[in-house]
Design a protein around this nucleic acid. Sequence first.
DNA 1: TACCAGGTGACTG
DNA 2: CAGTCACATGGT
Length: 237
Amino acid sequence: MTLPLPTTPTHSHVRSLYDRLYATYGPQHWWPGDGPFDVIVGAILTQNTNWTNVEKALAKLRNANICSFKTIHGMDRNYLADLIRPSGYFNQKARKLHEFAVLVENDFNGDLDQLLDLPMDDLRTILLGIWGIGEETADDIVLYAAHKPSFVIDKYTRRIIDRLGWRPRGVRYRDYQLMFTEQLPSDAALFNEYHALLDEHASTVCRPTPRCNQCCLQDICVARTDAPSHGGKGQCP
DNA sequence: TACCAGGTGACTG
DNA sequence: CAGTCACATGGT
């Protein structure tokens, strides 16, 4: 009996993972109709926070008619923090939103599109220079607001990859990202859907305590509950 | 009750 | 460079 051994995934593995998730969950429509302002604010507010909490904060911003970074740039920081309170870390996130607004106002003449129209690598580098924007949030913005093909790696993506036995050599963001970008065409629509599917799978099935009996990947996963070298918890060594 | 949720920056050894 | 901690609310 041969078990699936932890390996570096090939093009075929990476593509097949996408196909299975898409066949199981269908299109996810992540951030489809929202404009760049809502996407960027959502990307910052969702840091280490449940999306339902973010929706409460977004509703309060909308209700207060906060719809542009120009408005955020000029508003009272404590008031902004109070509006986004339900998303957690509200003082830090208010600062992050404000620092983003300062960049748009000072370096891009208040024109958000001028920032988002930059070449992908330039855009990503500038975003990473903003206090509070790390690699995942930068890629969220590049992919879902600017529609440029930067693959997003989050906690969910890492959990699925680790359990499949595909954990890369390093544990850095870049190590996980290269697994996908080296095996896929540079296609923003594909990256968009792929990341959304990974998150759907991780939040509903490949949870901290995995529901392997409902999993569409059982036959290729080394952490499945009947895998002899792992217990029933689905945790990777 | 603890744990979990679409992270990041500051600090330490 | 790898660990550890603060940041904070709301759902299960």
